[in-house]
């Protein structure tokens, strides 16, 4: 056998590989392909994919669109706070230092909405979890110059909390918002 500090002697390329090492190569190779296949298949048959249309948009326009949406929306009082009821399936949520425009919002359980995610200033992190089950959480990156339309269907009525989990400046730790998901509105 050779050492890692000396040049290998002779025709080292043609020395066969130990049987157990060959088997391991087979296992590791097969596993690599399998997890690739699963990930790529899941984009077709799976229900949880970080996928949606994106558009370049400048922050002023993002602001105008969000304001139009808010003007069209009605509100409802939940837990003593005004929540937005989206006029149709589109839900605008726009991050800025240090709050979420468009939140709190009231949504119907089991209905598919298109979340329009964006920001006015810097990057933010859109991190959502239901109050009663913290392990069910998802996280998406939000850009100031891009609108991302991600469809979501919340099945379980609960209060969902949004925390910003991308550093966006001093004050970032208080950047929080809510979704109220209810059987009926």
């Amino acid at each position: 056998m050779s050492t890692p500090l000396d040049p290998p002697k002779g025709n080292w390329w043609d020395i066969p590989v130990n049987r157990r090492e060959s088997i391991w190569l087979g296992i590791a190779g097969a596993w690599s392909l399998a997890i690739f296949g699963w990930m790529s298949g899941f984009t077709r048959f799976g229900d949880q994919n970080p996928v949606g249309e994106t558009y370049e948009v400048d922050p002023d326009e993002q602001w105008a669109r969000t304001q139009d949406y808010l003007d069209d929306a009605e509100t409802i009082e939940i837990d003593g706070r005004e929540a937005v009821i989206p006029p149709d399936d589109s839900v605008y949520i726009t991050g800025y230092r240090f709050a979420w425009e468009g939140l709190p919002v009231a949504l119907e359980a089991g209905r598919q909405y298109d979340l329009h995610l964006g920001a006015y200033d810097v990057q933010h992190g859109f991190s959502v979890r239901p109050e009663d089950s913290l392990s069910q959480q998802i996280n998406l990156q939000i850009f100031p110059d891009t609108e991302w339309i991600v469809p979501m269907t919340f099945e379980d009525p609960d209060t969902y909390h949004v925390i910003c989990n991308e550093y966006c400046g001093s004050g970032h730790n208080g950047m929080h918002g809510k979704f109220y998901v209810r059987e009926e509105l």
Partner: peptide, 21 residues
């Protein structure tokens, strides 16, 4: 260990609400 953790993580993921197009 790898396979087990893989399955566990995917199980947790599929417990989530529907996300994405």
């Amino acid at each position: 260990t790898f396979v087990l953790l893989y399955i566990l993580n995917w199980f947790l993921l599929t417990q989530l609400w529907q996300i994405g197009a």
